[in-house]
Structure formats: structure tokens, C-alpha cells
Amino acid sequence: MTTENPDETLFAADEPESYGKHSTGILPGHVLKRLIRARREVVATEEFDDAQIQPASIDLRLGPVAWRMRASFLPGPNATVQEKLSNAVLHEIDISNGAVLETGCVYVVPLLESADFSFRVSGIANPKSSTGRLDVFTRLITDRAQSFDRVETGYKGPLYAEISPRTFPVLVRKGSRLNQLRVRRGNPQFTDTQLRRLHAESPLVDCEPNIEDGLGLSVDLIGTDSGPQIGWRAKHHTNIIDIDRRGVLDPREFWDPIEPSKSGNIVLDPDEFYILASREAVAIPPEYAAEMVPFNPLVGEFRVHYAGFFDPGFGYTQGRPPSARAVLEVRSHEVPFILEHGQIIGRLVFERLTEVPVEAYGEGIGSHYQRQGLKLSKHFTD
């Protein structure tokens, strides 16, 4: 635990018990710390680490065992996860000191954290950015769940991660953090009218915004930042990636660079995984958080952005233009698809926090992707 500034640790002096200035919204990091200290809303079998608490979310930790599954599943409204395991588990794996999760396989891992949500409190989960950029498909499951990545209002019970590496085999261990949880009180709506007003007050993108059911983001296929390439395509049959080791891997052992074409487009090959970047630079004001939602499948044969959370402060510096590109994790489907420069391929939906976080996303807290352009996960050298 960090001890240099005791007022900011999980065990600081008592603070007023509230959810923040606003009665509804996403809970910021300092409120989450307060609630965790009081053993409210989110509890764990082991002591929390300060590093788990992000500006608007909690990193969730893997427990000591993983179950290799026959297939993915949801327990449904009348069963717990444990009750469903007997018909789906192939074998149990001890990951206490590390184990490899193979590509093309499905695993379920009990998490060290569990929910103890009160009235009006719910949660939404997503893979961490570094997880999504490795093409590790990770989803949260709860007892009696009818959908992934959702923790219903008032839920009290265990949390599980479903993990399926799609491209690279990964080494994980007890305590590895692959996904994150946002905790919300109430269900405030944020309309397109409010989004236009917010952009007028604090620019969200560095161009005229496309606002319709959220903020549209388009793809850069010509190299807006004048870099040597416009993307990366994942290689197959690579070495293992240790999920907890930063900055140690040579990108070209795992990725092929993609250079811009004269036509300004790219053909997505079936079942390939790409890292691309948005044409727009993005900024998330400190009192707001955003999520990239699944895009309408009717506009293209691809899926964009496994890791959908954008933290308050991402790409934001007061008085300056937006400074960070959204990195787009793109997986094609059954048929080749031509992606054009400037094509809208994702939308950000915004939500207010209950109050401004004490520490927003940025260099000050060691955020890895602030001011990013096209960027691979933190596991690779620059």
C-alpha cells in the first residue's frame, strides 16, 4: 500500500459518507476508496491495493483458480454460476503462481472482488485497455446474469471473469487485472443536446463533432499524425505474453505494421485482428466518463473496441485542444470488408460522475495512454 500521502489511501481518516456532489452518476475514484474502506458496495477476500482504483473504475483481480470451459455461457435468471459449472467445466487450473491461457479456449475465473450493491447502485464492466489491445476477450459474469458485463442494481454476490484469448496465448496469475468495473448510482440520462452543449463548453474532439446517439469517431487510414504507419495487424503462432510485464516485448515479433495506401482504405481480412486509431483527437472533461458502445453491425462486417472505457481527463488539458487519439481494436467477421478513411466506426456515450475525481486520468497518476496516437498495449516497447 502507498503510505506517502495517507489522506489518499484506502485507510485514510474518516470522510463523510456520500456518493458525491450529485446524487446520481458514476462514482469517482476517491468515493470508491471511501466506500471500500467502509466495506460498502465492493468487497474483496484480500486487501485492496491503491493501484486498483482508477479515476472512475476499479480494476478487478483474478483469483487463484481458472476453469477451462467447453463453451461460453450465461447462468440465466434462475441459476448461479457455480450451479452451471458442472455441465461445462473440462478441468481446473491452478493459476496461483502463473499459468498459460491458450488461444481459442474459454476460461472462467472467480475474482477476488465481489459486489455488495445497495439500492440504486449498479455496475458495468469492460476489459482494461491493455487487455483489449491484446485481443483477449474478457467479460464479467454474475450469478443469475442474463447479459455479460452488467451487475444489476442491488446485486450481492460473487463476480467472475470469462476469458478467451483470441490471438496471443497469455500468462496470468492470481492478482492479474484484466477487466474493470464502473459503479453507478441511479441511471442518469445524457442526451445528444447535453452532449452538444458540453462540446461547446469544452471541445470533445478537434473537429466538427458527429453527434447522433453519442459522439461518432472515425478511422484514420492516411496517417493524421504523420507516423510511419496507420495500424498494426496481429501475427499468428507467436510467443506467450505475460499479462503483468510492461515494456519488454518487441512489437514486430507479434505485429505486422500497416502503411497507408494510396487509396486511403484498408481491406479487413476475415478473422484478423487490427490496431487502428481514430481520425479525431479526443478529450474527456474531468467530470465526465465515456464508453465506446458496440457499433451497428449493419454498417460493416467488423467489431470495434473490446475495451470501451474512457476515463475522466483522457486527452484533456484545460485550455488546450483534445490531445489523444482513440485506439480502435478491430476484428473482422466472416467476409473481407473495405474500410475507408474517415468512416464512422464507433460512438462514445457520455455520463456524468457524481463529482470531479481527486485524480483524473493523465501523466500525474502514471496513465499509460495519455496523449496517445496509434499505440500498442503497455506490454510492448516503444
Rank of each mutant, 00 (worst) to 15 (best):
D269Q: 14
V267D: 10
A307E: 08
S263E: 14
H237L: 14
H236E: 15
D242H: 03
I275N: 04
L276C: 03
P297F: 12
A289Q: 12
G315S: 06
F273T: 02
D256S: 12
E280F: 01
A234G: 03
A283D: 00
I240T: 05
I243C: 00
I266S: 11
I241H: 03
E253R: 14
P251A: 06
F254S: 00
H305K: 15
D256G: 07
E291S: 15
Y288T: 06
L249A: 01
P260H: 13
R233M: 11
R245H: 07
G247S: 12
D271V: 14
G247F: 08
S278Y: 02
V293I: 12
Y288A: 10
E291M: 14
P260L: 12
P285T: 06
A307V: 04
Y274F: 05
Y274P: 01
G308C: 07
A289L: 03
E287K: 07
A290L: 04
A277N: 10
F295G: 09
V293C: 10
I284W: 01
L268N: 04
A289C: 05
R245Y: 04
D271K: 14
F310P: 03
L268C: 03
I266V: 13
V293G: 06
L298M: 14
H305I: 09
P297C: 11
A283T: 01
F254D: 00
E253T: 07
P312W: 00
K262I: 13
E287R: 05
D269K: 15
I266Y: 13
Y274I: 00
I243R: 01
D269F: 14
G300Q: 08
A283W: 01
F295N: 11
M292P: 10
Y274L: 02
A281N: 13
I243A: 01
P260W: 10
G313Q: 02
D256F: 10
W255A: 03
I284F: 01
R252V: 09
D250V: 06
V299M: 14
F309N: 13
